[in-house]
Design a binder for these strands. Structure first.
Lengths: 326, 326
DNA sequence: GATTGATGTGTAACCGGTTACACAATATGA
DNA sequence: TCATATTGTGTAACCGGTTACACATCAATC
């Protein structure tokens, strides 16, 4: 791989001139410019980004910290972030924390040491650490962080309300919410919104882990202990598990039991019957987070600190058609 | 952020000594060592990895190029690669090509310019480009590349055979394979293996795109034109679509129709009924690819060039229990 | 003809680590 | 006692870009 000095030699100019041509900065004569361009082509010269980073203190790297890319909520988010980053000439570094505080800290340290230009974090350690003290710009995604850190979430409270209203409107009378880990604020909001509207129709409110196996257990527990005809699951994976357990037990969906999920991941349309769900605009959330981050990186001030996007219900087949409530 | 020279000043030694302490290289007196360590702690000094990269020509970065992280096959792969990379002190840069030649080339150029230490590629442009000419070590995952590039795949031919054998053993008599895009060698192998064993029981062999919507169309086409009681889908997403279409049409699974998928992604267990499938060891494949790459990066020669892992059938509920075939 | 400003170019320092090399000081062995 | 390791440390060059600054040249203006 050739260097700028070699290019300079071939083009018979100084390195400064080569640099000027490359960055289109400062005065360069037409003659010098073509000579340099010619030399660059001849040597297949591409500037060393590491060297450039060192001087400019800008690496063109964005760190994306997620709990686990394997959780089907995150690939779409990651994709959105990567697309937006790519459009602006950034690359993204993927980090999985498994929700472990220590891994998260390790990654942040590494990323800082390699001078990433910014960080997008979806994390739980909302309060503990010193995000505000970090020198790099940060945007929080799907989780709300303390302080002056911009965040992007969707309106979970409204989502919960919409879910309850939808079930009620479609003839469900005994409602259950299978919530996620209640230490997560975003999850609590969904549940609270649901319970607010469900009111006296609420039969039970139980908790489930996010992963499928755990949700299977929660669903079994639910059916063992309660009777209901409308379930709101805190995410689509839990909803899928609930559907599976219901199918095993011969409970007809949506006739005997209606189920509504949350998230709007692709999984929802792949299962049978296809899942009615409260869809977050996942891709847009990732996109917005990346956009905000890039704006901060480029020094623009950001207006609102907290961005909350709307959710919408996607009606599929785990709920009854309107007018057929029976 | 403090620099090595500041540390040197505080510890009252030269930068060389600080560097020696940090890298545990060369002679350092106990006295100097403790002074340096003390200074490092005092200043919360962390070496600038960019500067280190520049000199060492080693960035600690691995590029992972996938078609689309949103395709449920890839998150597990990415996770495995990232885990292994992290264990060895590397970070991974995620790139989505959408199977577009041009995006792939762009990414490779960028990654080269930022001096990634290695590349893991899952790509289709098996023949076209100049992978062999690249200076960075490469490992191909799930796709076979020409030349001396190490590859990691699973035994698709055997997988196809196993699928056919399994359906036959469980009482299916009229078999169909819904294959993926036949330009992909890995996909062709699955189909060929299946057809080899299916023999005269093969009723039809059709092609489907990989994404769910397209697969829905293919499944509808299939049911409109053929009668069969055993289907092999080239991946689990296609299988899920087939199940959904079958459910819509009131075809009982597995009683009237048995379905077997391919891949072994989590989706398979989340759908109803849970999917019998030929599972690739996805995580292990990613892990192995990363391991091989890291070995190459560290200069070790690699024995075998092509690694083919075994697949196994995971029996769930879209196929009949043995002994209950009819 | 002198002053001013725009244009064009090169030298060398700088970013922050790493390390070859020179030079000491001390220890070992004959 | 003198030659030879062994141990310990600092200076300065280097990695490959970027850019402040000095210096030229040339046209326009007074």
């Amino acid at each position: 791989m050739s260097t700028i000095r070699e290019v300079a030699k071939v083009a018979n100019v100084s390195v400064a001139t080569v640099s000027r041509v490359m960055n289109e900065k400062g005065y360069v004569s037409e003659k010098a410019r073509t000579a340099v361009l010619q030399a660059i082509k001849q040597l297949d010269y591409r500037p060393n980004r590491v060297a450039r980073s060192l001087f400019q203190k800008r690496s063109g790297l964005i760190g994306l910290i997620v709990p686990d890319i394997t959780n089907p909520f995150f690939p779409q988010l990651a994709r959105a972030v990567e697309d937006m980053a790519h459009q602006h000439g950034f690359q993204v570094i993927l980090c999985n924390t498994d929700e472990q505080f220590q891994k998260e800290q390790e990654y942040i340290q590494s990323l800082e040491a390699m001078h990433v230009d910014g960080l997008i974090i979806t994390t739980n350690y909302s309060n503990n650490p010193n995000y505000e003290e970090l020198e790099v710009p940060i945007v929080a995604l799907d989780r709300v962080l303390q302080g002056a850190i911009p965040t992007v979430t969707s309106n979970g409270h409204d989502g919960g309300k919409k879910a309850a209203q939808f079930l009620l409107d479609h003839g469900a009378t005994e409602l259950v919410v299978i919530s996620g880990p209640s230490k997560l604020p975003t999850i609590r909001k969904r549940r609270d919104g649901f319970e607010e509207i469900a009111g006296k129709h609420l039969v039970a409110s139980i908790e489930s882990p996010f992963h499928f196996q755990g949700a299977l257990g929660a669903a079994n527990y639910l059916f063992d202990h309660y009777d209901c005809n409308g379930i709101f699951a805190a995410n689509d994976v839990i909803a899928a598990a609930t559907i599976q357990v219901a199918a095993e037990r011969g409970i007809a969906i949506p006739d005997q039991l209606q189920i509504i999920g949350y998230d709007g991941i692709e999984l929802g349309q792949m299962i049978s019957p296809p899942l009615t769900t409260i869809a977050q605009p996942i891709y847009q959330m990732g996109e917005l987070a990346a956009k905000l981050l890039i704006q901060r990186i480029e020094g623009k001030e950001i207006a609102a600190v907290h961005h909350e996007l709307m959710v919408e219900v996607i009606e599929r087949e785990t709920t009854k058609r309107k007018g057929e409530e029976s």
